[in-house]
Design a protein around this nucleic acid. Structure first.
Lengths: 191, 191
DNA sequence: TTTTTTTTGCAGTGGTCATTACATTATTCT
DNA sequence: AGAATAATGTAATGACCACTGCAAAAAAAA
C-alpha cells in the first residue's frame, strides 16, 4: 500500500516524491547530513532546486523524510528481531545477529541513524537521529522488560553500544566475519 | 623534552606552534575535519590566516599535526595497556578498560581517530585517520601474537570493533557506566 | 474559455569556505 | 649600517553552500 496518488489541482510533478526520498536517503546514509549538497541531490533526482524546495521545504525537511523512510524500511529489522525473541537472551541474539548482517550488506555499510549522529554539526539534524536512536533503545528495553530481564535499561544500553561498534566498523573497515566474531563473543557471555 | 626552540633568522612567531597544534586538536577531536573552519581555528589561536598557513601549509597539514599529537599524547594509552599486559586476556582487559575510561573522561568524548574516520568526506583526511586506526589494530595483533594468542588478527579486529562502539557511544549518549557494562560483559566471555 | 492552483526552469541571492597577494615589520647574519 | 630572511596584518580571491524571485507552463475547476 503505497501513498495514494490523488490527482490534485495544478501542474503535475515531474518526479515521484517517494522515489526522491529513497534516492536522497541513499546519499545521506552514505555520507551524513552536512557533506551531501542540495545540488548533488538535485542532479541525482533530475530536478531543479526550486522543485526540491517546493516539495520538501528545506534540506532538513528532506533529511527528516529520509530518516523516517530508513526507519520504516531497513531499520525495521530491530523491531522484527524483538518480535521474534521470546527470551532476554534471544533479544541479544536476534538483534545483534541481524545488526551484523544488515550493516555489512548492501553497498552502503552501517546504520544511517547510528552513523548519522556522528557525522553532522547541524544541531537539528543531530537531534533528529539522536531521538531515533533513543527510541530504538527504549523499544529494546521495553521488550527486555516484557520478557523478564532483571535490568532491561542497562542491557538495552549495552546492546546499543555494541550496535554502534558494528555499524561504524562496517562503514570503515571490518568484514562481515569481523562483526560476527564480536557478536559470537558477546553471546557466549550471555548464555 | 619539548621541541628545541632554536632561534632562527627572520621575524619571530607571535604564537607557539606546539600550543596551536594542541588547540586545533581539541577542535578537530570534537567535531571532525570538515566542520571545523580555518577561520574558527584562527580565532581560537589568535592568529591570522596568513600566519596559520605559513606555519602548517594548509588545513590538512594542520589536521595531520593534530592527529599525530593525539597519537603521541592521549592515544598512548593503548600502547601502555599493551605493555602492561602479560597474557592475551590482559590485553583485552587493559585495552578495553582504559578505552572506556579515556573515552568517557574529559570534555571531548570518544577517540579522535576512531570518530574522525566517520566524520569527514575529505579523502585524504579519512586516509590519515584510517591508517592510524589500522596501525593501532596491527599493534594489538602483534602484542597478542607475542603473548601466544591463537588468532591474534581476529582478536585485534574484534577489539577494534568494540573500541569503536565505546568511542562513538561516549561521544553521543552513553555514561561511563554504560561503557563499563559492555567491557565487563566481554571480559566475562574471554575469561 | 477563463480563472485558479501548483510545479517548473532559469538565474541569481547573500554567506561561508579554504586559500593567497601584497606590502610591512622584526629579527639575524655579514 | 645594510642585506637577507621569515614572520606579520590587511584585504581579497574564486568556489561552493543552502536557498529564492520571477515568470512561464500545465493541469483542474468555473
Amino acid at each position: 500500500m503505497t501513498t495514494a496518488k490523488k490527482r490534485s489541482r495544478g501542474r503535475p510533478r515531474k518526479f515521484d516524491v517517494d522515489v526522491g526520498v529513497v534516492q536522497a536517503q541513499a546519499l545521506f546514509a552514505g555520507r551524513g547530513f552536512d557533506t551531501v549538497g542540495m545540488s548533488e541531490i538535485c542532479e541525482t533526482l533530475g530536478v531543479t532546486p526550486t522543485s526540491l524546495y517546493a516539495a520538501f521545504g528545506n534540506k532538513l525537511g528532506l533529511y527528516t523524510r529520509a530518516v523516517e523512510n530508513y526507519a520504516n524500511s531497513t531499520g525495521k529489522f530491530v523491531s522484527a528481531a524483538l518480535a521474534a525473541a521470546s527470551t532476554p537472551f534471544e533479544v541479544w541474539e536476534k538483534v545483534l545477529r541481524s545488526s551484523a548482517e544488515v550493516y555489512s550488506s548492501g553497498d552502503i555499510k552501517g546504520c544511517m541513524v547510528l552513523n548519522g549522529a556522528l557525522m553532522s554539526q547541524d544541531a537539528e539534524a543531530n537531534a533528529l537521529v539522536a531521538a531515533q536512536a533513543e527510541a530504538t533503545q527504549a523499544a529494546i528495553a521495553a521488550r527486555l522488560m516484557e520478557l523478564g530481564d532483571p535490568d532491561p535499561k542497562e542491557s538495552a544500553a549495552s546492546i546499543l553500544v555494541l550496535m554502534r561498534g558494528l555499524s561504524v566498523s562496517a562503514r570503515t573497515n571490518a568484514s562481515r566475519n569481523d562483526l560476527d566474531s564480536v557478536v559470537d563473543l558477546v553471546l557466549s557471555a550471555k548464555r
